[in-house]
Design a protein around this nucleic acid. Structure first.
Length: 259
DNA sequence: ATGTCCTTACCTTAAGGA
């Protein structure tokens, strides 16, 4: 089973590039971030006609996440549990009904810039809330994957020019510590379980010729529960998508799991 | 570290977010 995450930076702007990638890669499940659309405005028919079920958790203008799946989805949860006052659409979960079901969480973790400040406080609070959700999921001892835009550069090797990010909310020690704390619950960074070394990125800024200079960062991740990690057979980044027509600033990151 | 892109509100342009 092929599961991917893709921050599309607006469904309207990506209405050609996203189907093009789906046709080429044929993932079974895709977690989308930054759909920037209300649920009722999401062009679900485009993807249903391609054989996908569509579950969205959107909001106007900003944020918004979705899960596309060729397999049936059950028990959809919208919104990260733990704070009913949080109105930002950044989390969606569903169980993919394969022969061995797997819980899939799609997330768009807050950017947090500028740091310090209220936006960074929100990021750290959101990460603490996500950690609690991970603890609850781990307690079920079932297979799950948390796939999305984490807005976290885990290590210096995950940035082409780490010195540029020293004061950025994506790379501050507190950010990286909160991410590490999630891993240390017993989760696996799927990409790093399969690929070692520098030079692997999932985001290149539109500005300052970042793509042409390969000035990228790896911030889109799939974290696996132990039961999911047992089934991991491959992981990769679809870098070539960034060179296509009208690309997102992110590219898809994927894992292959035993069915 | 700003050479861009996306969205909305409201228009032939600007602001906010990333």
């Amino acid at each position: 089973m092929l599961i991917a995450t893709f921050n599309i930076n607006g469904i309207k702007a990506r209405i050609e590039a996203l189907p093009r990638w789906l046709d080429a890669s044929r993932p079974d499940v895709v977690c989308l971030q930054e759909i920037k659309s209300l649920d009722e405005a999401f062009p679900r028919e485009v993807f249903e006609d391609m054989g996908y079920r569509v579950e969205t958790h959107g909001q106007k203008s900003f944020n918004g996440v979705a899960i596309l799946s060729r397999l049936p989805l059950e028990d959809v949860v919208r919104g990260l549990p733990g704070d009913t006052s949080d109105e930002q659409a950044r989390w969606i979960e569903a169980t993919v009904m394969a022969p061995r079901p797997i819980r899939v969480c799609g997330l768009y973790l807050p950017n947090g810039n500028p740091a310090p400040g209220p936006k960074y406080d929100y990021k750290l609070a959101w990460m603490a809330r996500m950690e609690q959700r991970l603890r609850d999921l781990l307690a079920t001892e079932e297979a799950f994957v948390c796939a999305g835009d984490y807005n976290v550069i885990p290590q210096a090797e995950d940035a082409a020019r780490p010195e540029l990010w020293a004061d950025d909310a994506l790379f501050l020690p507190q950010t990286r510590a909160a991410f590490r704390q999630m891993l240390n619950l017993g989760l696996t960074d799927a990409f790093r379980a399969r690929v070692e070394g520098p030079g692997h990125y999932s985001f290149w800024d539109y500005q300052a010729g970042a793509w042409e200079r390969n000035n990228g960062i790896r911030i889109d991740h799939l974290l696996l529960s132990p039961q999911a990690a047992d089934r991991l057979t491959g992981a990769g980044i679809d870098k070539q998508v960034r060179a296509g027509d009208k690309p997102s600033d992110h590219v898809p990151v994927w894992i292959m799991l035993d069915d």
